[in-house]
Simulated assay, not measured.
Amino acid sequence: MMDPVLAQLEETYGSQIKFAKLNVDNNQELAMTYKVMSIPSLVLFKDGKAIEKVTGLYPKDKLATYLDKKLASQ
């Protein structure tokens, strides 16, 4: 579902943001650690710590705006 959007965002932000995917069915303990209760969920990390979680389907433009704000606040 989100794969094409995340692939496009990775092309745009690849030098600033690292994108990774996790199959929560195969990694339930990790999903519980980060309170992933529904998919898709995006967990944002900074300096190795989870700082925010976004749940739900979002269009590329909306996620790009969100990421731009996060990068600007660094």
Rank of each mutant, 00 (worst) to 15 (best):
D47A: 05
S41T: 15
P59C: 08
E52N: 06
E29K: 15
L42I: 10
E52L: 05
V54K: 14
P40K: 00
K62L: 11
D25Q: 11
L63A: 05
L44H: 03
Y58G: 08
V24Q: 02
A20T: 04
F19Q: 03
S38R: 07
M2D: 07
L71T: 11
V43H: 09
D61H: 12
V24A: 13
I51A: 02
K18Q: 13
K49L: 01
T12R: 02
V54G: 09
L22R: 08
P4A: 03
N26P: 03
K62Y: 12
P59S: 10
F19V: 10
G56L: 00
K62W: 06
T12V: 15
A64G: 11
S38V: 01
Q16R: 12
N23S: 08
S73C: 01
F45S: 00
S15Q: 09
G14L: 00
A50D: 00
N27A: 10
L42K: 07
E10A: 15
L71E: 08
K70T: 12
Y66E: 12
N26D: 06
E11S: 13
L9Y: 06
E29V: 11
K35C: 07
F45V: 02
L42R: 01
L63V: 09
K60H: 13
Y66Q: 14
G48F: 04
Y58Q: 10
V24K: 06
P59Q: 11
G14Y: 06
N26Q: 11
N26F: 03
L57W: 07
I51R: 10
I17A: 14
A64I: 09
G56I: 08
K49E: 12
V54C: 10
T12N: 07
E10V: 02
S38E: 02
V5D: 01
K35S: 15
A64T: 15
